[in-house]
């Protein structure tokens, strides 16, 4: 038995192609990219050894700090909003809509499958101020509020980006958390109801603690996804106005492909990777502590 299930030749045939492509196109470039971080230049003009120069440059670069700050702010705000809204929606599905929730679930989920570029172009038009007045500004005008140039100021742009990504993702987190809520045993909810817990008390004392594991994984998925935001921003604001909405991913892209600085670009990419790891570990740690306390 073990001889057949451990057949070396079969393992090679089955695993070989995947491992080969994965190693050549992912693992080798990852290590290669680490190597780039101590060099300056690009393949056309050649590379010169730069030691830790790229790292000192990174920490003294105001544009890099602005990108880090934007990335973290965006990731934290969107993570809280999308997991929070998703949880709210999942409670709505389970406790109010019950069996009728299937259609609503499907409708609220659908923006997830839409291409980001298409949604971004649509949102540009929805929030347009001039030359035509988009629906949002038209609505404001109805209430006597003058049109707002949403993409003209850093703050307004930030919130449009958040709003658009929330629109795209809340249905997704709702379904993810909904599946978690269904795992709560009905007897537990029933006995809590008999004990007089209802409404928010039931949610706070029973539902929330029991859905903590799936909430935790949602937070980790969300923070890892949002720290890597790229499509939304390049299509919606292209980092503007100025570089006010430029995240690390876009800054890396511009540095590498517009200015041809491969060494510095790789350094930014590495910093982004480290940021993702730090946040994942941090969420892990902080929630673990809470569980042991409760």
């Amino acid at each position: 038995m073990d001889r057949v299930l451990g057949d070396k030749r079969a393992i090679f045939v089955l695993l070989g192609p995947a491992l080969l492509v994965y190693s050549l196109v992912m693992l080798v470039p990852i290590l290669w990219s680490l190597g780039y971080t101590v060099f300056d230049g690009n393949p056309i003009v050649g590379f010169t050894f730069n030691g830790l120069g790229n790292f000192t440059k990174f920490f003294q670069d105001p544009a890099a700090w602005s990108a880090i700050w934007f990335t973290i702010r965006y990731a934290l705000v969107l993570t809280i909003l999308q997991v929070g809204t998703g949880f709210g929606l999942s409670l709505l599905y389970v406790f109010w809509l019950k069996k009728a929730s299937s259609t609503i679930r499907t409708i609220v989920f659908f923006p997830v499958v839409l291409p980001t570029v298409a949604v971004a172009l649509l949102f540009q038009r929805l929030f347009e101020a001039a030359p035509t007045t988009g629906p949002v500004n038209s609505l404001l005008n109805v209430f006597g509020i003058p049109s707002v140039d949403w993409f003209g100021t850093p703050d307004a742009s930030f919130w449009i980006i958040i709003l658009m990504d929330l629109w795209r993702s809340m249905g997704f987190y709702a379904v993810l958390l909904y599946a978690g809520l269904l795992d709560i045993p009905e007897e537990m909810l029933e006995s809590a109801r008999l004990d007089g817990a209802g409404g928010w008390k039931l949610v706070r004392t029973i539902v929330l603690p029991l859905s903590l594991p799936v909430l935790l994984s949602s937070l980790i998925f969300s923070i890892n996804g949002t720290l890597k935001v790229f499509d939304t921003i390049i299509a919606l604001t292209n980092g503007g106005p100025g570089n006010a909405t430029t995240p690390l991913t876009l800054y890396m892209f511009q540095t590498s492909f517009t200015y041809g600085e491969y060494g510095y670009g790789s350094t930014i990419a590495l910093m982004l990777t480290i940021l993702c790891l730090l946040f994942t570990v941090f969420i892990f740690r902080s929630t673990r502590r809470d569980i042991t306390k409760g």
């Binding site: 992912m26 890597k228 890396m252 990777t273």
Partner: peptide, 16 residues
């Protein structure tokens, strides 16, 4: 490979 951002592999791949 799921964790690592795609940005990490773009530049070496471009060269390759």
């Amino acid at each position: 490979g799921i964790m690592v951002p795609t940005q990490m592999i773009l530049l070496p791949l471009f060269t390759i």
